[in-house]
Amino acid sequence: MVRVLVYSIVCFLLSGCLSSGVGDIRPQDPYEKFNRKSFQFSESVDKKLLAPVAHGYSRILPDPLETGFNNLFANINSVPSSVNGLLQGQIEVGAREFVRLMINSTFGVAGFFDVASRWGLKQQHEDIGQTLAVWGLKDSPYVYIPVLGPSTVRDIPVRLVGMSVPRLLIGEDFPGYATALRVVGQRAAMSEVIEQRDANAIDPYTFTRDAYTQLRAFEIFNGDPPVEDFFDEFEDE
């Protein structure tokens, strides 16, 4: 727990030089040339490797086991979620995530079963990127990280924390294959969303970028983001 706090502070200090925040929900994309190439490369890796593995994973693993493994990693994420809830001044959220962690780690067999949700304690995901946004830094440029996916410069620490938290909490006993299992599980959980995107998007890169930016705003504002309502567009009529 202490190591996670220290790591979070380090990530915050590292990202302190970034200009980032909430501001306008339209994405800034100054690195579009690089981002498009990174997107194309990542799509190629996904189609040839990740998607087939994730598909096989979902087909072979019974649903309760797949859900259980996802719950395990979600439970580990309760630690940074709780810390970031508190850092944002959301005491109730921070406390609830901590209580969820306690309940699921004990009654839920290390988090395999999400007992806390069944008891009415809904999960609310908070991370260092949201904390930085709430602390009021300016807008952050969009960046597509090869293989890892969409992000902003502000949200890069989220990836670093996410990858490091399991090993920080569990130590050297955390098995290496668990990270691979986590990545495949996350990709499997995204399959339907990615299928919908591929079915509906005319320009998948732009679709992904704008959808990601809006989704982050949804998370930062806890489900009540400023949405461009377009009512002003009618003034021209």
Binding site: R26, D203, Y205, D210, Q214, F221, G223
Partner: peptide, 16 residues
Amino acid sequence: NGISDLSLRRAEYGSV
């Protein structure tokens, strides 16, 4: 869930 259909259309169509 916070994702505006019209915003996405405008961004995509503008890009194409």
